[in-house]
Amino acid sequence: MLRRIFWNPEWNESLFLVSCAERLMQNPTEFSAKHSEDEILNRIIRDLKNNSSILDLVAAEYLQFRLMFVYREDSQLQQEITYHSRLQSLVVEDVE
C-alpha cells in the first residue's frame, strides 16, 4: 500500500477517466465532448490491446462505451445509463 504513495499511474488514469465521464455529463462544447470521448476510447482500446486474451475472446470490430451513473434516491440506489459513445472501429490505431 505504501508503494501507492509514489507510484500509482493506473489509478490516476482511472481518476482521469472519471473526470472525462463527468465532463461529458456537464453539457460540454462539441470540441470538449469529443476530447473526453476520445480519451476514454483510447484508454479502453489500449487496455484491450494490452490484454490480448480479452481481444481474442471478444473478437469485436467496433467498440462503444456507455456511462452508467449510480445515485441515491431516498434510501434506494438507482442506476441510470446517461451516455452512449460513438461506434469506434478497433482497426484504427488511435482515435484522432
Binding site: 501507492r4 504513495i5 509514489f6 500509482n8 489509478w11 490516476n12 481518476l15
Partner: peptide, 9 residues
C-alpha cells in the same frame, strides 16, 4: 487518502 483512494498526487 493516497493509500485508500489512490489520491497519491
Amino acid at each position: 487518502n493516497a493509500c485508500v483512494f489512490g489520491l497519491n498526487r
